Simulated assay, not measured.
Amino acid sequence: MLRTVNRVLLGLVGLLLLVAGGSVLAVGLGAKPPSWWVHDGRHDVLLSDSARTRWRDEGWWWPAVIAALAVLVLLTLWWLSAVLRRHRLGEVLVDTGDGEGALLRGRALEGVLSDEAGQLDGVERAQVRLTGRRRAPEARMRLLLEPHVDPGDALHGLTTEALAHARDSAGLAALPAEVRLRGVKHRAERVS
């Protein structure tokens, strides 16, 4: 959902900037603006001296401006951190049983889990992505099932074999997983 919000917000901001900049450029090049537009002609400025200094002496003006800019900066920083945040777990902390821990690369655990899930009966392809924290990873899996397999059987095999092996080998108390199942669609073939 964040990707959709990101694209919509960037699209709206880009469209607003394009329309505003294009209209100012068009008026600056000599196009006749509509009567409601903010400036009248080529040599007119966007903000006059009186418009710029109108609220300067009011007591609420500067706190309101500073609060609005602070909110804008916080929203921009939140958006930037959401865009730059890694969506894939880099490493998993494995409990070695002696009070210490070992770090396991997240991609390695993803590969093993994907290979083991792909070898289950009726699974044509498996994709795994680890998310969450180092001490509490979560798996997001996509399984492409062959047409003859029962999805319940495939899901049971996945939880009792592949996920259980990954959880036990990493010494995790739990390995929650979101599994998306999709069936293979074969094209009709002509038999002669």
Rank of each mutant, 00 (worst) to 15 (best):
T96C: 06
A174N: 09
S81T: 12
V65K: 12
L163M: 03
W62V: 14
R180I: 08
L104H: 05
H43I: 02
A166T: 10
V8N: 04
A170L: 15
V123L: 07
A136F: 07
G171T: 06
V38Y: 14
G157D: 15
R88I: 11
L15Y: 02
L113R: 00
S35Y: 09
L158A: 08
D98F: 06
A126D: 11
R3M: 08
A162N: 01
A82F: 05
D115Y: 08
V94G: 04
L158W: 04
R3G: 09
A162S: 14
L2M: 12
E161I: 08
L2A: 08
V73Y: 07
Q127S: 15
T53Y: 11
V191P: 02
G97D: 06
V112F: 07
W36A: 15
W60D: 09
H148S: 11
V128K: 04
T131A: 14
L25D: 00
V149N: 00
M141A: 10
L158S: 08
V123I: 13
V8K: 05
S48F: 08
A82P: 00
A64E: 07
P34T: 09
A154R: 00
A31E: 12
L104R: 11
A20R: 06
I66L: 15
R56V: 13
W78V: 13
R187P: 03
